[in-house]
Design a protein around this nucleic acid. Structure first.
Length: 109
RNA sequence: UCAGCCAAACAGAUGGUCGCUGUAUGCUUGUAAAGAGCAUAGAGAGGAAAGUCCGAGCAUCAAAAGAACAGAGUGCAAGUUAACGACUUGUGGAGGCGACUCUAAGGAUAGUGCAACAGAAAUAGACUGCUAGAAAUAGCGAUGGUGGAAAGGUAGGGUAAGAGCCUACCGAGAACUUGGUGACAAGUUCUGCUCUGUAAACCCCACUCGAUGCAAGGUUAAGUUUAGGCACAAGUGUUCUUUAUUGCCUAACAAAAAUACCGCUUGAAAUUGUUGGUGACAACAAUUCUAGAUAGAUGACCAUCUAAAACAGAACUCGGCUUACAGUUUGACUGAUUUU
RNA sequence: CGAGAUGUAGCGCAGGUGGUAGCGCGCGCGGUUCGGGACCGUGAGGCCGUGGGUUCGAGUCCCGCCAUCUCGA
Protein backbone atom coordinates (compact mmCIF):
# COMPACT_ATOMS: atom_id res chain seq x y z
CA UNK A 1 0.00 0.00 0.00
CA UNK A 2 1.39 3.37 -0.99
CA UNK A 3 0.42 6.47 0.86
CA UNK A 4 -0.30 9.95 -0.30
CA UNK A 5 1.63 12.41 1.80
CA UNK A 6 2.02 15.83 0.26
CA UNK A 7 -0.35 18.68 0.74
CA UNK A 8 -0.32 19.57 -3.00
CA UNK A 9 -1.51 16.09 -3.93
CA UNK A 10 -4.34 16.26 -1.45
CA UNK A 11 -5.49 19.62 -2.75
CA UNK A 12 -5.31 18.40 -6.36
CA UNK A 13 -7.51 15.42 -5.56
CA UNK A 14 -10.03 17.50 -3.64
CA UNK A 15 -10.41 19.82 -6.63
CA UNK A 16 -10.40 17.40 -9.51
CA UNK A 17 -11.57 14.12 -8.09
CA UNK A 18 -14.85 12.23 -8.29
CA UNK A 19 -16.67 12.19 -4.99
CA UNK A 20 -18.64 9.41 -3.30
CA UNK A 21 -19.92 9.64 0.26
CA UNK A 22 -21.70 7.65 2.95
CA UNK A 23 -22.87 8.64 6.39
CA UNK A 24 -19.45 8.88 7.98
CA UNK A 25 -16.95 9.03 5.12
CA UNK A 26 -16.24 10.70 1.80
CA UNK A 27 -14.02 9.18 -0.92
CA UNK A 28 -12.23 11.26 -3.55
CA UNK A 29 -10.78 9.47 -6.59
CA UNK A 30 -8.49 10.57 -9.45
CA UNK A 31 -6.78 8.49 -12.15
CA UNK A 32 -3.10 7.97 -11.58
CA UNK A 33 -0.15 8.22 -13.97
CA UNK A 34 1.72 5.37 -12.33
CA UNK A 35 1.06 1.64 -12.12
CA UNK A 36 0.22 1.89 -8.42
CA UNK A 37 -2.77 2.88 -6.45
CA UNK A 38 -2.14 5.34 -3.68
CA UNK A 39 -4.37 6.34 -0.78
CA UNK A 40 -4.39 9.09 1.79
CA UNK A 41 -6.41 9.47 4.97
CA UNK A 42 -7.71 12.78 6.26
CA UNK A 43 -9.10 13.28 9.75
CA UNK A 44 -9.87 16.81 10.83
CA UNK A 45 -9.32 18.36 14.23
CA UNK A 46 -13.06 18.56 14.78
CA UNK A 47 -13.30 14.80 15.33
CA UNK A 48 -11.27 14.74 18.52
CA UNK A 49 -7.96 15.16 20.22
CA UNK A 50 -4.70 13.77 18.95
CA UNK A 51 -5.03 10.26 20.34
CA UNK A 52 -8.54 9.86 18.91
CA UNK A 53 -7.46 10.97 15.45
CA UNK A 54 -4.41 8.72 15.43
CA UNK A 55 -6.44 5.71 16.43
CA UNK A 56 -8.97 6.31 13.67
CA UNK A 57 -6.20 6.62 11.07
CA UNK A 58 -4.58 3.41 12.26
CA UNK A 59 -7.86 1.52 12.00
CA UNK A 60 -8.58 2.85 8.52
CA UNK A 61 -5.13 1.85 7.35
CA UNK A 62 -5.60 -1.64 8.78
CA UNK A 63 -8.93 -2.06 7.01
CA UNK A 64 -7.62 -0.91 3.65
CA UNK A 65 -4.55 -3.12 4.00
CA UNK A 66 -6.41 -6.33 4.83
CA UNK A 67 -9.87 -6.22 3.40
CA UNK A 68 -9.97 -3.95 0.37
CA UNK A 69 -8.66 -5.14 -2.96
CA UNK A 70 -8.04 -2.20 -5.21
CA UNK A 71 -7.98 -3.15 -8.86
CA UNK A 72 -7.61 0.24 -10.48
CA UNK A 73 -4.49 2.34 -10.44
CA UNK A 74 -6.05 5.43 -8.97
CA UNK A 75 -5.30 7.98 -6.28
CA UNK A 76 -7.75 7.94 -3.39
CA UNK A 77 -8.40 10.21 -0.43
CA UNK A 78 -10.59 8.92 2.36
CA UNK A 79 -12.06 11.75 4.43
CA UNK A 80 -13.51 10.96 7.84
CA UNK A 81 -16.58 12.91 8.88
CA UNK A 82 -18.41 13.57 12.12
CA UNK A 83 -19.17 10.56 14.29
CA UNK A 84 -16.78 8.18 12.60
CA UNK A 85 -14.44 8.11 15.58
CA UNK A 86 -17.15 6.58 17.77
CA UNK A 87 -17.81 3.53 15.57
CA UNK A 88 -16.36 0.14 16.42
CA UNK A 89 -14.08 -1.79 14.15
CA UNK A 90 -16.64 -4.04 12.46
CA UNK A 91 -19.02 -1.29 11.40
CA UNK A 92 -16.08 0.74 10.15
CA UNK A 93 -15.04 -2.18 7.99
CA UNK A 94 -18.49 -2.65 6.49
CA UNK A 95 -18.89 1.01 5.74
CA UNK A 96 -15.59 1.25 3.94
CA UNK A 97 -16.35 -1.81 1.85
CA UNK A 98 -19.65 -0.13 0.98
CA UNK A 99 -18.04 3.08 -0.12
CA UNK A 100 -15.62 1.35 -2.47
CA UNK A 101 -18.47 -0.71 -3.97
CA UNK A 102 -20.48 2.46 -4.40
CA UNK A 103 -17.69 4.06 -6.35
CA UNK A 104 -17.36 1.05 -8.65
CA UNK A 105 -21.09 1.04 -9.33
CA UNK A 106 -21.02 4.72 -10.12
CA UNK A 107 -18.16 4.18 -12.51
CA UNK A 108 -20.01 1.33 -14.30
CA UNK A 109 -22.98 3.61 -14.90
C1' U B 1 -15.89 -2.07 62.41
C1' C B 2 -17.10 2.84 60.58
C1' A B 3 -15.44 7.74 59.31
C1' G B 4 -11.17 10.41 58.01
C1' C B 5 -6.06 12.20 56.96
C1' C B 6 -1.09 11.86 54.72
C1' A B 7 2.35 9.37 51.54
C1' A B 8 3.88 5.81 47.80
C1' A B 9 3.31 2.28 43.59
C1' C B 10 0.60 0.59 39.13
C1' A B 11 -1.95 2.68 34.63
C1' G B 12 -4.28 -4.04 32.01
C1' A B 13 -1.42 -8.94 32.03
C1' U B 14 -0.01 -13.68 29.47
C1' G B 15 0.08 -16.65 24.89
C1' G B 16 -0.86 -17.02 19.47
C1' U B 17 -1.69 -15.04 14.03
C1' C B 18 -1.30 -10.76 10.51
C1' G B 19 0.81 -5.64 10.08
C1' C B 20 3.82 -0.39 11.44
C1' U B 21 8.88 2.86 12.75
C1' G B 22 14.16 3.05 13.94
C1' U B 23 18.86 0.17 15.15
C1' A B 24 22.44 -3.97 14.36
C1' U B 25 24.01 -8.14 11.35
C1' G B 26 23.73 -11.00 6.84
C1' C B 27 22.21 -11.60 1.70
C1' U B 28 20.55 -9.48 -3.21
C1' U B 29 20.80 -5.11 -6.52
C1' G B 30 24.39 -1.25 -7.49
C1' U B 31 31.67 0.25 -10.44
C1' A B 32 31.73 2.48 -5.53
C1' A B 33 29.24 5.62 -2.09
C1' A B 34 24.34 6.86 -1.12
C1' G B 35 19.92 4.32 -1.74
C1' A B 36 16.30 0.16 -2.47
C1' G B 37 14.49 -4.92 -1.34
C1' C B 38 14.48 -9.48 1.72
C1' A B 39 15.71 -12.34 6.24
C1' U B 40 17.13 -12.68 11.44
C1' A B 41 17.93 -10.43 16.25
C1' G B 42 16.68 -6.92 19.66
C1' A B 43 14.09 -1.89 20.81
C1' G B 44 9.63 1.19 20.36
C1' A B 45 4.85 7.08 24.12
C1' G B 46 3.01 9.45 29.56
C1' G B 47 1.81 10.28 34.72
C1' A B 48 0.36 13.82 33.05
C1' A B 49 3.61 13.01 26.65
C1' A B 50 -1.55 18.09 27.59
C1' G B 51 -1.72 23.67 28.92
C1' U B 52 2.72 26.67 27.37
C1' C B 53 2.51 29.43 33.19
C1' C B 54 7.89 29.86 35.07
C1' G B 55 13.37 28.38 35.01
C1' A B 56 17.78 26.36 32.31
C1' G B 57 20.62 24.29 28.18
C1' C B 58 21.26 25.17 22.80
C1' A B 59 21.03 28.67 18.47
C1' U B 60 20.72 33.48 16.06
C1' C B 61 20.63 38.90 16.59
C1' A B 62 28.36 42.44 14.32
C1' A B 63 30.27 42.53 19.84
C1' A B 64 26.12 41.10 25.22
C1' A B 65 32.07 43.95 27.89
C1' G B 66 30.53 48.15 31.52
C1' A B 67 27.10 52.02 33.55
C1' A B 68 22.46 54.75 34.00
C1' C B 69 17.27 55.18 32.83
C1' A B 70 12.74 52.96 31.18
C1' G B 71 9.97 48.38 31.42
C1' A B 72 8.87 43.59 33.68
C1' G B 73 9.01 40.16 37.72
C1' U B 74 9.63 38.44 42.84
C1' G B 75 8.55 39.78 48.25
C1' C B 76 8.30 36.12 56.30
C1' A B 77 13.27 33.17 57.81
C1' A B 78 16.96 29.57 56.96
C1' G B 79 18.26 26.11 53.48
C1' U B 80 18.05 22.83 48.61
C1' U B 81 19.05 23.44 43.39
C1' A B 82 22.56 24.31 37.18
C1' A B 83 18.50 27.85 37.79
C1' C B 84 13.55 29.43 39.19
C1' G B 85 8.07 32.70 40.59
C1' A B 86 9.80 25.62 42.23
C1' C B 87 10.84 22.50 46.57
C1' U B 88 12.11 21.44 52.01
C1' U B 89 12.15 22.58 57.20
C1' G B 90 10.60 26.32 60.34
C1' U B 91 8.06 31.40 62.06
C1' G B 92 3.48 34.41 62.21
C1' G B 93 -1.80 34.11 60.73
C1' A B 94 -6.58 31.16 59.36
C1' G B 95 -9.50 26.40 59.61
C1' G B 96 -10.38 21.45 61.91
C1' C B 97 -12.24 17.51 68.29
C1' G B 98 -7.82 15.41 65.90
C1' A B 99 -4.29 13.16 62.25
C1' C B 100 -3.47 17.45 59.34
C1' U B 101 -4.54 21.37 55.72
C1' C B 102 -4.37 26.45 53.65
C1' U B 103 -1.59 31.12 53.42
C1' A B 104 1.17 37.01 46.88
C1' A B 105 2.84 37.08 54.52
C1' G B 106 7.94 43.85 53.15
C1' G B 107 6.41 49.25 53.86
C1' A B 108 -0.04 53.03 55.24
C1' U B 109 4.39 58.66 60.81
C1' A B 110 8.34 59.23 52.32
C1' G B 111 4.53 61.19 49.36
C1' U B 112 -0.03 61.18 46.03
C1' G B 113 -4.85 59.15 44.97
C1' C B 114 -9.64 56.68 46.10
C1' A B 115 -13.66 55.33 49.89
C1' A B 116 -20.65 55.10 46.23
C1' C B 117 -25.14 55.04 49.46
C1' A B 118 -26.26 56.01 54.50
C1' G B 119 -24.67 59.30 58.41
C1' A B 120 -24.17 65.62 62.08
C1' A B 121 -19.33 64.17 60.72
C1' A B 122 -15.08 59.64 56.75
C1' U B 123 -9.74 61.71 59.29
C1' A B 124 -11.80 65.75 61.21
C1' G B 125 -12.71 71.95 61.44
C1' A B 126 -17.67 72.40 62.48
C1' C B 127 -23.01 70.94 63.75
C1' U B 128 -26.38 68.71 67.50
C1' G B 129 -25.42 68.72 72.55
C1' C B 130 -23.69 68.74 78.30
C1' U B 131 -22.06 72.15 82.43
C1' A B 132 -21.27 77.09 84.68
C1' G B 133 -23.22 82.03 83.89
C1' A B 134 -28.36 87.18 83.80
C1' A B 135 -25.61 87.69 79.31
C1' A B 136 -21.09 88.14 76.69
C1' U B 137 -18.38 84.08 77.13
C1' A B 138 -15.66 79.90 79.23
C1' G B 139 -14.97 74.57 80.01
C1' C B 140 -16.03 69.77 77.67
C1' G B 141 -15.60 65.90 73.99
C1' A B 142 -19.76 61.92 77.02
C1' U B 143 -24.42 62.50 73.72
C1' G B 144 -26.18 61.51 67.73
C1' G B 145 -26.56 54.44 65.76
C1' U B 146 -25.51 55.28 60.03
C1' G B 147 -21.67 52.49 58.01
C1' G B 148 -17.10 47.76 55.90
C1' A B 149 -14.61 51.51 58.94
C1' A B 150 -16.50 56.74 63.93
C1' A B 151 -10.97 59.63 68.39
C1' G B 152 -8.35 52.07 72.21
C1' G B 153 -12.44 48.46 74.94
C1' U B 154 -14.96 46.81 79.69
C1' A B 155 -15.79 47.83 84.93
C1' G B 156 -15.15 51.09 89.03
C1' G B 157 -13.66 55.79 90.93
C1' G B 158 -13.71 60.93 89.85
C1' U B 159 -16.18 65.85 88.22
C1' A B 160 -20.03 71.75 87.80
C1' A B 161 -20.35 68.69 83.31
C1' G B 162 -16.83 65.58 81.36
C1' A B 163 -12.39 63.40 79.66
C1' G B 164 -6.70 57.66 80.46
C1' C B 165 -8.11 62.56 84.62
C1' C B 166 -7.00 57.96 88.10
C1' U B 167 -7.13 52.41 89.08
C1' A B 168 -7.80 46.99 87.53
C1' C B 169 -8.03 43.57 83.40
C1' C B 170 -7.61 43.14 78.00
C1' G B 171 -5.35 45.59 73.66
C1' A B 172 -1.16 48.95 71.66
C1' G B 173 3.82 50.99 71.61
C1' A B 174 8.99 51.54 73.42
C1' A B 175 13.34 49.80 75.99
C1' C B 176 16.00 45.85 78.18
C1' U B 177 17.08 40.62 79.37
C1' U B 178 17.02 35.46 77.95
C1' G B 179 16.61 31.59 74.00
C1' G B 180 17.20 30.86 68.63
C1' U B 181 21.95 31.13 62.63
C1' G B 182 17.23 33.71 61.65
C1' A B 183 11.89 34.80 60.95
C1' C B 184 10.43 35.19 65.95
C1' A B 185 9.14 33.62 70.98
C1' A B 186 9.08 34.19 76.39
C1' G B 187 9.76 37.43 80.48
C1' U B 188 10.58 42.24 83.05
C1' U B 189 10.11 47.44 83.21
C1' C B 190 8.16 51.86 81.36
C1' U B 191 4.55 55.04 78.46
C1' G B 192 -2.19 56.67 79.83
C1' C B 193 -1.35 55.69 74.59
C1' U B 194 -4.67 61.34 68.35
C1' C B 195 -3.48 59.84 63.33
C1' U B 196 -9.50 54.27 59.66
C1' G B 197 -9.09 51.08 55.26
C1' U B 198 -6.92 50.21 50.50
C1' A B 199 -0.17 49.12 48.09
C1' A B 200 -3.90 42.27 44.05
C1' A B 201 -4.21 51.81 43.25
C1' C B 202 0.23 54.79 41.86
C1' C B 203 4.39 54.39 44.69
C1' C B 204 8.86 53.44 48.30
C1' C B 205 12.54 49.69 49.78
C1' A B 206 15.39 45.06 48.69
C1' C B 207 16.73 41.49 44.97
C1' U B 208 16.54 39.54 39.71
C1' C B 209 16.17 40.16 34.28
C1' G B 210 19.30 42.09 26.73
C1' A B 211 15.72 40.19 22.70
C1' U B 212 13.87 36.19 19.85
C1' G B 213 12.69 30.98 19.67
C1' C B 214 14.39 24.28 16.61
C1' A B 215 8.96 27.14 11.62
C1' A B 216 15.84 28.94 16.12
C1' G B 217 19.80 28.07 12.98
C1' G B 218 23.08 25.48 9.46
C1' U B 219 24.75 22.18 4.79
C1' U B 220 24.22 21.29 -0.71
C1' A B 221 21.88 24.49 -5.00
C1' A B 222 20.65 29.38 -6.51
C1' G B 223 22.18 37.27 -7.28
C1' U B 224 28.96 40.55 -6.90
C1' U B 225 20.53 41.96 -10.34
C1' U B 226 18.02 46.79 -10.89
C1' A B 227 15.88 51.44 -8.89
C1' G B 228 15.34 55.01 -4.91
C1' G B 229 16.86 57.05 -0.09
C1' C B 230 20.69 57.95 3.85
C1' A B 231 25.48 59.65 4.43
C1' C B 232 30.07 59.87 8.10
C1' A B 233 26.94 58.58 9.95
C1' A B 234 23.79 54.13 10.18
C1' G B 235 22.27 49.46 12.38
C1' U B 236 20.17 45.43 17.83
C1' G B 237 14.13 48.99 24.30
C1' U B 238 16.55 54.23 25.12
C1' U B 239 21.10 57.00 26.35
C1' C B 240 26.34 56.94 27.20
C1' U B 241 31.28 54.52 27.20
C1' U B 242 34.66 50.82 25.08
C1' U B 243 35.88 47.52 20.96
C1' A B 244 35.02 45.74 15.96
C1' U B 245 33.10 46.13 10.84
C1' U B 246 32.02 48.91 5.91
C1' G B 247 28.36 50.22 3.62
C1' C B 248 23.14 50.51 5.62
C1' C B 249 17.70 50.88 4.69
C1' U B 250 13.33 50.37 1.42
C1' A B 251 10.97 48.55 -2.99
C1' A B 252 10.84 45.56 -7.47
C1' C B 253 12.39 41.45 -10.38
C1' A B 254 14.74 36.75 -10.88
C1' A B 255 15.79 31.90 -8.76
C1' A B 256 14.03 27.96 -5.53
C1' A B 257 13.56 19.93 -5.04
C1' A B 258 12.14 19.94 -0.54
C1' U B 259 12.53 18.00 6.16
C1' A B 260 16.90 15.99 0.98
C1' C B 261 20.48 16.16 5.08
C1' C B 262 22.40 18.17 9.88
C1' G B 263 20.40 20.21 14.47
C1' C B 264 18.06 14.92 16.81
C1' U B 265 19.15 12.39 21.21
C1' U B 266 24.90 10.03 26.34
C1' G B 267 22.05 13.33 29.46
C1' A B 268 22.56 18.78 35.57
C1' A B 269 20.74 10.47 32.36
C1' A B 270 18.50 5.95 34.56
C1' U B 271 18.58 1.63 38.02
C1' U B 272 20.50 -0.65 42.50
C1' G B 273 23.23 -0.11 46.94
C1' U B 274 25.97 2.53 50.89
C1' U B 275 26.89 7.00 53.64
C1' G B 276 25.53 12.16 55.43
C1' G B 277 21.18 15.30 56.45
C1' U B 278 14.65 16.23 60.39
C1' G B 279 13.95 17.08 55.07
C1' A B 280 14.32 19.11 49.99
C1' C B 281 18.82 16.91 48.49
C1' A B 282 24.02 15.66 48.14
C1' A B 283 28.41 12.42 47.80
C1' C B 284 30.46 7.71 46.48
C1' A B 285 30.39 2.74 44.13
C1' A B 286 28.56 -0.79 40.60
C1' U B 287 25.59 -1.69 36.33
C1' U B 288 22.95 -0.02 31.84
C1' C B 289 22.23 2.67 26.92
C1' U B 290 16.46 3.14 27.30
C1' A B 291 11.57 6.17 20.95
C1' G B 292 13.52 9.56 17.36
C1' A B 293 8.66 9.88 13.65
C1' U B 294 7.91 13.94 9.49
C1' A B 295 0.13 13.04 6.49
C1' G B 296 3.84 11.91 11.62
C1' A B 297 5.26 4.87 13.87
C1' U B 298 1.74 0.54 19.08
C1' G B 299 -3.55 -1.51 15.35
C1' A B 300 -6.95 -5.91 14.31
C1' C B 301 -8.64 -10.83 15.68
C1' C B 302 -8.73 -15.27 19.11
C1' A B 303 -8.09 -17.65 24.21
C1' U B 304 -7.70 -17.08 29.80
C1' C B 305 -7.97 -13.83 34.15
C1' U B 306 -15.99 -12.26 36.48
C1' A B 307 -15.51 -7.28 32.91
C1' A B 308 -11.22 -4.79 29.93
C1' A B 309 -12.55 -0.38 30.61
C1' A B 310 -10.32 6.46 32.87
C1' C B 311 -7.58 10.88 31.25
C1' A B 312 -5.01 10.73 27.13
C1' G B 313 -0.22 10.16 21.94
C1' A B 314 6.86 12.03 22.23
C1' A B 315 7.82 16.27 17.83
C1' C B 316 14.97 20.09 20.17
C1' U B 317 16.12 18.46 25.39
C1' C B 318 15.79 18.80 30.70
C1' G B 319 13.81 20.89 36.05
C1' G B 320 9.19 22.54 38.09
C1' C B 321 3.99 24.41 38.26
C1' U B 322 -1.14 24.01 36.57
C1' U B 323 -5.19 21.29 34.64
C1' A B 324 -7.81 16.12 33.16
C1' C B 325 -8.36 11.09 35.14
C1' A B 326 -11.77 4.62 35.62
C1' G B 327 -9.94 1.46 38.93
C1' U B 328 -6.43 -1.48 42.07
C1' U B 329 -2.70 -2.19 45.88
C1' U B 330 0.58 -0.93 50.08
C1' G B 331 2.24 1.77 54.43
C1' A B 332 2.07 5.55 58.57
C1' C B 333 -1.35 8.23 61.54
C1' U B 334 -6.24 10.41 63.76
C1' G B 335 -11.37 10.30 65.81
C1' A B 336 -15.70 7.41 67.30
C1' U B 337 -17.90 2.78 68.77
C1' U B 338 -17.63 -2.38 70.39
C1' U B 339 -15.02 -6.61 72.56
C1' U B 340 -10.94 -8.63 75.49
C1' C C 1 4.87 22.89 17.08
C1' G C 2 5.52 28.04 18.42
C1' A C 3 3.69 33.33 18.97
C1' G C 4 -0.47 36.60 19.85
C1' A C 5 -5.68 38.62 20.32
C1' U C 6 -10.90 38.48 21.74
C1' G C 7 -15.22 36.71 24.83
C1' U C 8 -20.79 42.23 27.62
C1' A C 9 -28.83 42.09 25.39
C1' G C 10 -31.21 38.13 19.45
C1' C C 11 -26.92 40.73 16.12
C1' G C 12 -22.82 44.57 15.82
C1' C C 13 -20.19 47.33 19.51
C1' A C 14 -19.10 51.17 24.05
C1' G C 15 -17.85 50.97 29.16
C1' G C 16 -9.12 54.13 30.31
C1' U C 17 -7.91 55.39 36.19
C1' G C 18 -13.12 49.94 41.16
C1' G C 19 -19.40 52.59 43.41
C1' U C 20 -24.01 48.61 41.09
C1' A C 21 -23.99 48.57 32.73
C1' G C 22 -25.23 51.62 28.15
C1' C C 23 -25.51 52.85 22.27
C1' G C 24 -27.27 51.39 17.26
C1' C C 25 -30.12 47.70 14.59
C1' G C 26 -33.89 44.15 15.75
C1' C C 27 -38.43 42.77 19.11
C1' G C 28 -43.40 44.05 22.02
C1' C C 29 -47.23 47.93 23.00
C1' G C 30 -49.42 52.76 21.89
C1' G C 31 -49.77 57.11 18.58
C1' U C 32 -49.65 59.12 13.48
C1' U C 33 -51.98 57.23 8.24
C1' C C 34 -57.71 55.34 4.44
C1' G C 35 -53.64 51.34 4.96
C1' G C 36 -48.21 50.21 4.93
C1' G C 37 -43.29 52.34 5.43
C1' A C 38 -40.74 56.32 7.64
C1' C C 39 -41.47 59.16 12.16
C1' C C 40 -42.88 60.06 17.64
C1' G C 41 -43.61 57.98 22.60
C1' U C 42 -42.95 53.81 25.74
C1' G C 43 -41.40 48.88 27.45
C1' A C 44 -39.04 44.11 27.81
C1' G C 45 -34.55 41.59 27.26
C1' G C 46 -27.83 40.73 30.96
C1' C C 47 -25.16 35.42 36.85
C1' C C 48 -20.42 40.79 31.69
C1' G C 49 -17.12 32.98 28.80
C1' U C 50 -16.08 30.04 33.48
C1' G C 51 -13.81 28.82 38.77
C1' G C 52 -11.25 31.08 42.77
C1' G C 53 -8.83 35.36 45.33
C1' U C 54 -7.82 40.86 46.87
C1' U C 55 -11.41 44.66 48.56
C1' C C 56 -16.71 47.24 52.52
C1' G C 57 -17.80 46.54 47.15
C1' A C 58 -15.21 43.64 40.99
C1' G C 59 -17.61 44.04 33.94
C1' U C 60 -13.03 46.72 35.66
C1' C C 61 -7.42 44.51 39.81
C1' C C 62 -4.72 39.39 40.47
C1' C C 63 -4.35 33.86 39.52
C1' G C 64 -6.21 29.26 37.21
C1' C C 65 -9.28 27.03 33.21
C1' C C 66 -12.67 26.91 28.60
C1' A C 67 -14.04 28.46 23.71
C1' U C 68 -13.24 31.20 19.23
C1' C C 69 -10.08 33.83 15.87
C1' U C 70 -5.32 35.57 13.73
C1' C C 71 -0.01 35.09 12.48
C1' G C 72 4.80 32.17 11.51
C1' A C 73 6.82 26.98 6.25
Amino acid sequence: MHRLKKNKEFNYIYKKGDRVSTEHFTLFVVKSKYNNYRIGFSVSKKLGKANVRNKLKRRLREIVRRDIEVKNFHNYVLLARDGSSKLDFKTLKEEIKKIFLKYEKKKMV
